[in-house]
Design a protein around this nucleic acid. Structure first.
Length: 461
RNA sequence: GACCCUUUCAUCUAGUGGCCAAGGAUAUUGCGUUUUCAUCGCAAAAACAAAGGUUCAAAUCCUUUAGGGGUCGCCA
């Protein structure tokens, strides 16, 4: 049975990098009809917050990913961890270390000066004398002193780390609170994980966790370390690079399916395929196709995907989504007409809402430049004829409006631009936008006439 | 500094010794469609980090160099 997990520490919002590793884990579990579990790593009592937990859950909800069973909170499992500390102490696999923080700092500085990798020197490993007074001990685990710690990473291949690189690290702080690498190994084992997919910033934690697995006699899961997502310049993603909070994408008008499609293709591929529905992702995902190297965030591609998903979304759903962006056309009789005329012009829901508003709301401000460009000497005459024909025309569908324009073009023997541009500026106040016949069909005869009249009046004042 | 990971067009990537004088996608440019913009269609330009090996044959294997990233906490 495939069991995966996402294990965020609740110190802030859900980051898109975190969402991608969660997505990989989720897909892998779904594909194998296994379990995807959620564990909240809140052992740092100072930094974690409940708000952060709800923020993370909200983001999961928005993208439509759900976890199996109840979320596990590490802060509620301290007793369990303490038992394992006790066990290791009794078995002589861990020991108390009375080194003070000052002594540790001094040791590190000395090692740094010698150009070595800093590590605890194991001075209390076999200590049997009287402990110094006034120092509350930490518990350290006995790591192997020689040889190599090896494991096979599902993404990077075989990883070998010399035992001399892994020191007797602290598993319980002074005061008894257990540390990250200790509890992660215990929980991953106890939760029955078969596959651990996480960021490659954890690569160096893996040998430490293996020390714990072995001391406790747990079976190792498969590890997959996924490279980071960098910004467009190839540097670490930071808040200055735009949206890093998953929920920001909602505000910016992205569709969750576009964001997931974007993220799944960052560091993973399936041949030449670019567009993946959620179902296809589940069917096709395999961690063996995860890339070894880091990838750069690429807004253009996200935008392209978002435009794609907007174009292909059912109108009823689009209308529903637009409500959050200040446009409510759910009950509008010409909803389909409106969306057909606009949805290819908005890469985000924000832009789509703008396009819809542009048509629905009569222009209040006619740009003088536009007027100058579009309105020539004979324009009022042309528009007058247009209105005359429009008043008498039979108008049932979009094409009927087009016929009106055609009639004017024929009678006046002019090009389409001669009537098109002034008409567009009159109706929208803009030189660009949806098709004129579509716009007029949405507005209807009366509103169309009124907007043209208004524009002509404006011109005369 | 030490250790570990990594390196194909601007970007995401295909590629596991011969199908590769390197394919797809985004972005860019041009053309076409369109009354405009957008969409769409077609086309162009654009890469194996460098140097040495191994081999009949290397983007693919080995070595070295260079660039990028990560880790060195009683944070997670």
């Amino acid at each position: 049975m495939t069991t995966t997990r996402f294990a965020p520490s609740p110190t802030g919002y859900l980051h898109i990098g975190g969402l991608r590793t969660a997505l990989f884990s989720w897909l892998w579990a779904k594909k194998n009809e296994g379990q995807f579990l959620l564990r909240i790593e809140d052992t740092d009592l100072v930094r974690n917050s409940e708000d952060a937990v709800t923020a993370i859950l909200k983001a999961f909800d928005w993208v439509g990913m759900s976890y199996d069973g109840e979320a596990i909170f590490q802060s509620k499992r301290f007793e369990l961890y303490a038992q394992y500390v006790e066990q290791l102490l009794n078995e002589g696999k861990a020991y108390k270390c009375y080194m003070s923080k000052e002594e540790l700092t001094a040791l590190r500085e000395e090692q740094m000066a010698k150009g070595e990798r800093t590590r605890y020197d194991g001075r209390y490993r076999d200590f049997r004398g009287t402990p110094p007074e006034g120092v509350e001990p930490v518990i350290r685990i006995k790591a192997p002193t020689e040889g190599t710690i090896s494991f096979v990473d599902g993404v990077k291949g075989e990883i070998n780390i010399a035992a001399s690189e892994v020191d007797d690290f602290v598993i319980a702080r002074a005061g008894g609170v257990p540390t990250y690498n200790f509890v992660v190994a215990i929980d991953d084992a106890l939760m029955g994980l078969s596959d651990v997919i996480r960021g490659d910033d954890h690569l160096y934690n893996t040998p430490k966790q293996i020390v714990v697995y072995e001391a406790l006699g747990f079976k190792l899961p498969n590890f997959y370390h996924v490279a980071m997502i960098n910004n467009e310049q190839g540097k670490k993603l930071s808040k200055r690079d735009g949206a890093t909070d998953v929920m920001e994408y909602k505000t910016l008008g992205y569709l969750p399916e576009a964001l997931l499609n974007f993220l799944v293709r960052l560091g993973w591929s399936h041949g030449d395929q670019e567009i993946f529905s959620i179902e296809e992702m589940i069917e096709l995902f395999d961690p063996k196709n995860i890339n070894k190297s880091s990838s750069n965030y690429n807004l253009d591609k996200l935008l392209w995907l978002n435009a794609h998903y907007i174009k292909n979304k059912p109108h009823s759903e689009l209308a529903e989504l637009l409500v959050d962006f200040g446009v409510d056309i759910r009950e509008h009789s010409k909803k389909d007409l409106i969306l057909n005329a606009t949805k290819e012009r908005g890469k985000t829901l924000v832009e789509l809402a703008e396009q819809v508003n542009l048509i629905l709301n009569a222009p209040t401000d006619y740009n003088a430049k536009n007027f100058k460009k579009a309105f020539k000497e004979d324009t009022p005459e042309i528009l007058a004829l247009f209105m005359t024909i429009l008043k008498e025309a039979e108008l049932n569908e979009v094409a009927d409006y087009h016929k009106v324009i055609e009639a004017v073009v024929e009678q006046k023997e002019i090009g389409f631009g001669k009537i098109g541009m002034p008409l567009r500026v009159s109706l929208l106040g803009s030189m660009t936008g949806s098709g004129l016949d579509e716009i007029m069909a949405i507005l209807g005869r009366d509103e169309t006439l009124s907007r043209i009249e208004k524009a002509i009046n404006e011109l005369n004042t």
